[in-house]
Design a protein around this nucleic acid. Structure first.
Lengths: 234, 234
DNA sequence: CCAAAAGTGTTTATAATACACCCATGG
DNA sequence: CCATGGGTGTATTATAAACACTTTTGG
């Protein structure tokens, strides 16, 4: 138990290993996927693990995560948000180590395939996630919960789609995330009612002969609305 | 920049000072309050600060927060939830130190007044919060945001009220948190529609001659409903 | 008896849901 | 010409919002 005395100085305070682990989501043709890789240190070297790293003395936690993401995917400017701190004393059998989990949403067609393979990383569909080291499977479960909640209240789903996307694509993303089937008409109606999608004069014909119109999400407009208390709810 | 070599071992990884700071909310007769105290270490010794502590090698982050809360308020079993990690490299001019902020909701009549005074802690109404050390004012702003969001979706407001409370009390709590005036009839109707309040055969006559019936929140029932996907929305 | 807070119902507006057909086109 | 996915509108139901009076009782 600490006493008053312990608080009087920074010196001689305990220092801890601080890691960050990234739950990296991608959306690939109707399927929600996660990026995992082969762990590079003992214990459990070679087993499946989330990508992550120790946090350096001269970097913030998000910076550490961005460093790792860049290294593994070749991508910058990735959507990244803190999930939760995992700090159980015995969570890591290698050493006492807390981990700040973060989830990232990436456009799965943008990443650098060579880079990913170089690190022994692999995309797994949600249902096929293998057993991971430590508490990483728990992190994934928590991240999924969070993703479901967040996508229902904030327009972050777009981070998983190409900049230009079709409404049916977006719908299938939401269906994958929430594991439901949505009504086409109601989905489209509600979505367009926000007036945050910019319709382009192009069609994507990759999934149908008729072709579906491409849209862009109007980030600028959303930013403005958000500041004045707007709530995106899907 | 880290290279592959850096990952091969836990040894010789950087260790960091890890603190936790608690944003302690209380609700006192219509006013939302926060508990702050006089900082006990340099730099900024003696200035207003959130209560907090370094995280020990043998305790989890929530355990550290509970230890601090017990010390400052004499209370156990406090509602506590992680807010956010603050990890900017230069956030603490005393030393590189990350802080895991957590917010706590306490029943303001339960705490140990002697204990609080002993530590030089004081309750401030939201509008009167002084300038605090480091990034603590930012933490408070973030905690308030979170509290507003959370209370709209989860029944955590009850943590700020006595176990037995009246509907008008509850309403005034929500009004204080969300800074609005609510309609009595609609508020009561919606709240009772969840069927999660147990009406007692007692009245609280402290605020009116007629007296208002006391209620208890049915935590057990809520737990069950929550598991089957129920959503509390106010 | 009256001031002050507690308690109660109905109407209206808004949002969510359910539901079925036509369109465009490449093969 | 037809199979396939894209696109549209309306009626119904449920939920939210607006609104005013009666009840109780201590002083």
């Amino acid at each position: 138990m600490k006493t008053l005395e312990n608080y009087r100085t920074y010196i001689a305070q305990p220092k801890l290993l601080v890691a960050t682990d990234c739950i990296v989501f991608g959306f690939d043709d109707g399927v929600l996927k996660l990026l995992v890789f082969r762990r590079r240190i003992d214990p459990f070297k070679g087993e499946w693990s989330l990508i992550g790293s120790f946090v350096d003395a001269e970097e913030s936690v998000p910076d550490a995560a961005r460093r790792v993401l860049l290294e593994f995917t070749g991508l910058e400017n990735i959507f990244l948000e803190e999930l939760k701190v995992y700090s159980d004393v015995d969570r890591d059998s290698g050493a006492r180590c807390i981990s700040i989990a973060q989830y990232a949403l990436i456009r799965i067609n943008d990443y650098d395939r060579e880079q990913v393979e170089l690190h022994g990383a692999k995309w797994f569909a949600l249902e096929d996630i293998p057993q991971l080291v430590l508490d990483h499977n728990v992190m994934i479960a928590d991240a999924l919960d969070r993703l479901r909640q967040k996508t229902a209240h904030r327009p972050i789903g777009f981070e998983l789609l190409p900049e230009k996307f079709t409404i049916p694509q977006l719908q299938s993303l939401y269906e994958a995330i929430h594991q439901t089937k949505l009504d086409d008409r109601n989905f489209r109606k509600k979505l367009l009612s926000f007036d945050l999608l910019i319709k382009l004069n192009e069609k994507d014909k990759s999934t149908s002969k008729k072709g579906a119109f491409l849209y862009r999400f109007d980030y600028d407009k959303y930013k403005r609305l958000e500041e004045s208390g707007f709530n995106f709810i899907l």
